[in-house]
Amino acid sequence: MSTAIKAYAVPEVLVSTDWVAQHLQDPSVRIVEVDYEPETAYQLGHIPGAVLINWKQDINDTVRRDIVSKEGFEKLMGRLGIKPETTVVLYGDFRNWFATYAFWVFKIYGHKDVRLLNGGRRKWIDEGREMTEEVPTVEPTTYRCHGIDLGLRAFLPEVSYAYQRDDVKLVDVRSPAEFKGEITAPPEYPTEAAQRGGHIPGAVNIPWAQAVADDDTFKPVDELRQLYEGKGVTPDKTIITYCRIGERSSHTWFVLKYLLGYPTVINYDGSWSEWGNTVGLPIEKGE
């Protein structure tokens, strides 16, 4: 483990590309690529031996607009050949956003040893490491969850109460344009836009990308501490992260909870697509 990784609060949750390269054949490790768009990622090439989680289909319940159910998660783990004791390493497209979302879901369902590839797919490719189109054959398992931690997830009723509290800080990790209300969704996805643009009153804007270096690895712990504490996001508060649908905010959730070791960090996956569309909830616009 590198010195930089050791300095994080919970360094075990992060692995380097070197570590992954050394564990490609390790039967106790399952490498999982989590993609929003597998057709332009996993299906074109992935880390040898990696299996796929299709974010839209596998980790979400698109009918309920919810994360995958406990039973669905157990089935998914079984299909991917994962046991409760397996070390799972996640990485993926879109700069690890959806991998950290999956990490969050793995933690909700109590998987003990789940880790994130520091720098993700982008760094693996940048280093010229081996990629393959071969889909591995895995032996299915029977997986049972041991406990569910819903304390990691914020729902609208609690956010609509919490945003007014002094001991709670909301972190909006979207781009400044989204925070200010200039845009509400990517133009390619107009149906996913919120009715209103802006942010939850009192939230601070710290775009997710400010936590990573050019190669998508996380910044050193001192820089991260300065970044968040400098905007009033301190460990004595309950921190709620949000974005548009909860995936970029899971990246910041990961940083605050595991790299900085904040005791209470909660991801609000309803995020702006819920708050911005809800009748009667206040919003702020501008800086």
Binding site: Y36, E37, T40, D93, F94, R95, W97, R174, S175, A185, P186, P187, E188, Y189, E192, A209, C243, R244, I245, E247, R248
Partner: peptide
């Protein structure tokens, strides 16, 4: 150019 939520620069090129 940066990824946006659900929209990547690569998709534009494709």
């Amino acid at each position: 150019r940066e990824e946006m939520c659900g929209a990547s620069p690569v998709n534009f090129a494709i």
